[in-house]
Amino acid sequence: MSEPVLQCENINRFFGGIHALKGISAEIQQGEIFGLVGPNGSGKTTLVNCITGFYAPQRGQILFEGKQINGMRPHRIAANGIARTFQNVALFKGMSVLENILMGRHIFMNPNPLAALFYPFWAAKEEVAHRRKVEQIIDLLQLESVRDEHVEVIPLGLQKRVELARALCAEPRMLVLDEPMAGMNQEEKEYMVRFILDAQEELNLSVLIIEHHLDVVTSICDRVLVLNDGNKIAEGPARTAMSDPEVVAAYIGGQAHAA
């Protein structure tokens, strides 16, 4: 494989007296689907929040395409090509599905009040051009039927898909998915997996995915990193890492040597 697209080196994060990430290092290769798993409270979302700029790690550094991104504010990181979704759907409630997805184009647009004042000469062309791009993503994720609905009224499975669409519209080179399948039934899960694979293939993305459904993890992830209590306990190809005795112990409880 080529250069890693994302490198995390010795990431440490404290919350008061809690040492939430204890020197995590990881490398994600271009074009791979990298799983991040671990029991609740093990630091998965903390790591993702460090990568997307919600808070900077106190020690360690994060490189995206060779560029240091730790310490950057979230919107700068977004402009650099990382998009993410949230565990609890974070859509904009006052808007329609279409407007939510259009928000994904924000980094390519010119949010200028003067553009609105001279709408026919200034903003109209831009809006239409971006609408075209948004329609491609809507087509890819099969959201045509709910395009004009308000986001609150559509089912959770679709909301998560809208959130994925919004992230994809930013044309990221790396996609970070925080539990994209939480709270979904089997059918919705299968759809979601299919859409993630489609998007990854079609748009040539690297994907970092936090997921609890182990069937999903083992079937789509190239490699996984297992966290427990802020420590890295295993890393490697999905099946091998998931059958590591320490991982089994962390998930099921009991002694490491018992398995």
């Binding site: 919107h75 977004a78 998009a83 859509l91 928000m103 924000h106 980094i107």
Partner: peptide, 8 residues
């Protein structure tokens, strides 16, 4: 926070 993460 969602707005920031999408580039606003």
């Amino acid at each position: 926070f969602a707005a920031a993460v999408i580039g606003v």
